[in-house]
């Protein structure tokens, strides 16, 4: 049920598969990254390609510098005879959103969503600069880590977090001792290497189902609501210390109606962003945050957001959680945010 009272068609995540993220996977091309996760997700869902009504992917051609690499990746899905297919040049979480919207039409009951990213071929900071405002930001050549560092400083200045708090997030995700981490040199002050994501090559896939297919499925994490919101692209027009778009998306996704939240998978590539997101979602100490390790530990570009949703769903599938919140982000300094509310029980 949405906030407006409009009844959505119930859709469940019925399987999730991902490659173990690695720093560099030179041997596999994009189709070979996609094929194993698609095959595994379909097998776990008990479906074949012929059973899938809609296929959609998220990726970014700039990562490997090859136009239409997302078309090459389709080889990994075996799209023959011709399939109904779509693509977003974004994290796969937004592809999942498109699939969820597609399933609302009611004429198909299943959707395959996948994402892949191969950052090891290019210069990721320079590639991320090309997504910025081409008039005022891109000509300065500011990179993603520098932008995150500006946000981190703003958060520190607000008094709501300290460098020790950032190190505590890093220690919780990566292991190690927060106090010892503070001895490391700055990468771009106030961020140290442990505050910045470990960039990876990877891929993941999710199968969504509605109607009888969902009800018959052995595993289901019901999407109780999903929404995404964007903030102004001009950094100086934003309060970088909070994430109002995450809060709004959570309201519209019906996170409040979940009751107690067992697990939250937050797409926070930088340690301070996890703190901002916890605040934005009002997550208390009882919530298990990023049990998967999160994007700080393995940031496969275009994959990490969808992997948060898949990882949260997997906790519901294995029975270790009844409710979960998954979050994905896109753009500099948490510019755009998606929130997905998941539960073991279908909407009341």
């Amino acid at each position: 049920m949405s906030r407006a009272g409009h009844r959505h068609r119930d859709v469940a995540i019925i399987s999730f598969a991902q490659l173990p993220p690695v720093a560099r996977d030179a041997a596999r091309d994009e189709a070979e990254l996609v094929q194993p996760v698609v095959n595994q997700a379909l097998a776990e869902a008990g479906l074949t390609r012929k059973d899938i009504g809609f296929t959609v992917s998220g990726s970014c051609d700039y990562l490997i510098g090859r136009p239409f690499s997302f078309v090459s990746a389709l080889d990994g899905v075996a799209p023959w005879p011709p399939i109904a297919e779509s693509h977003v040049e974004m994290d796969g979480a937004w592809a999942l959103y498109e699939a969820w919207v597609r399933l609302q039409q009611g004429d198909v009951d299943t959707a395959l969503v996948y994402a892949y990213g191969k950052s090891s071929l290019g210069d990721l900071p320079a590639i991320l600069t090309t997504q910025l405002d081409p008039y005022y930001l891109a000509p300065l050549g500011i990179d993603g880590i520098s932008l995150a560092a500006l946000q981190a400083r703003a958060l520190l200045d607000s008094g709501r977090a300290s460098e020790r708090d950032l190190a505590a997030v890093a220690a919780a995700r990566r292991g190690g001792d927060a106090a010892a981490l503070l001895g490391a040199a700055y990468t771009v002050a106030p961020l140290r290497a442990h505050d910045c994501p470990t960039v990876a090559d990877g891929a993941c896939a999710v199968v969504l189902a509605a109607g009888d297919v969902a009800r018959r499925s052995a595993r289901k994490a019901w999407i109780r609501g999903i929404d995404h919101r964007v903030e102004p692209h001009q950094l100086g027009s934003r309060d970088l210390t909070c994430s109002p778009s995450t809060t709004t998306a959570a309201e519209h996704a019906g996170v409040a109606s979940l009751g107690a939240i067992d697990v939250a998978e937050l797409h926070a590539p930088f340690s301070h962003q996890e703190l901002i997101l916890r605040d934005a979602l009002g997550l208390g100490a009882s919530v298990s945050i990023n049990p998967s390790g999160g994007a700080l530990v393995a940031n496969a570009m275009m994959v990490a957001g969808l992997a948060r949703i898949g990882s949260a769903a997997a906790r519901i599938h294995d029975g270790t959680a009844r409710t979960a919140v998954a979050h994905a982000t896109s753009g500099p300094c948490l510019q755009q945010n998606l929130v997905c509310a998941l539960a073991a029980e279908v909407s009341p």
Binding site: A126, Y186, L191
Partner: peptide
């Protein structure tokens, strides 16, 4: 209003010596 310190400027950056980004 906020700043970050770059110790190793990149080719694309506006300065070649260590500098701060700032809003």
């Amino acid at each position: 209003t906020t700043w970050a310190w770059v110790t190793e400027p990149r080719r694309e950056h506006p300065l070649t010596q260590p500098f701060a980004w700032a809003l």
